[in-house]
Amino acid sequence: MILELKNITKTYFHKDGPVNAMKDISFSVEEGSFITITGPSGSGKTTLLLTIGGLLRPSSGEIFFKDKKLKLESESEMSSFRDHHIGYVMQNFALIPYLNATQNVLIGLTGDSAKTHNKQMIAEAVLDLMGLSDRMNHYPRELSAGQQQRVAIARALVKKPSFILADEPTGNLDPALTGEILELLKEINDKQKITIIMVTHSPVAAAMGNTKIHLKNGCIEIH
């Protein structure tokens, strides 16, 4: 068990009244598993994903990473957790427009351990793996949607994370590209044993998961 969520709740305090986006969510994640999260719009999927990555502090509950309780209230600990263990892949790619593909991947390598020279090589190797060896110096606007998402996946992958958290990674892609990206994620999961937690609206994508979570109104149904 690599990750365990216990009684997680999240209430957004909006001026029109509080929103209970997650209500008492508990589940555990096996190392190397592929988890898909589905659910209607507004059911709390993104909220859940951001909470796991420490980008959002839950209103209550606990998260254990490898049996160690995470200090959710500590900004530095959660930044470091994210830095070392989490790669995000977003629906809209989240690339920085003035950085080329290689540079966008490099910002995923924020740790100080690797030498600059090394980092460059690692980034290029991962882009190569994503089939982008001839697009390394292209800026996001010079890449197709599928290529942009592959750069984003490369950035998530480059730090050799424990998890990839993907929020509708194929939401902006046509069916052919969707298949391609899903294949890529499956391969990463199979070969590199990286745990994947993916939010998706597509039943085909959802079927890929070996654990399927369905969210409804901030509550969880596991299959």
Binding site: G53, S76, S79, S80, D83, H84, Y88, A94, T110, K159
Partner: peptide, 16 residues
Amino acid sequence: RKEIGILRMVGYPRRR
């Protein structure tokens, strides 16, 4: 804002 969000997402601490 978007860029800063992205950087935070990839693990930049506030300090950075």
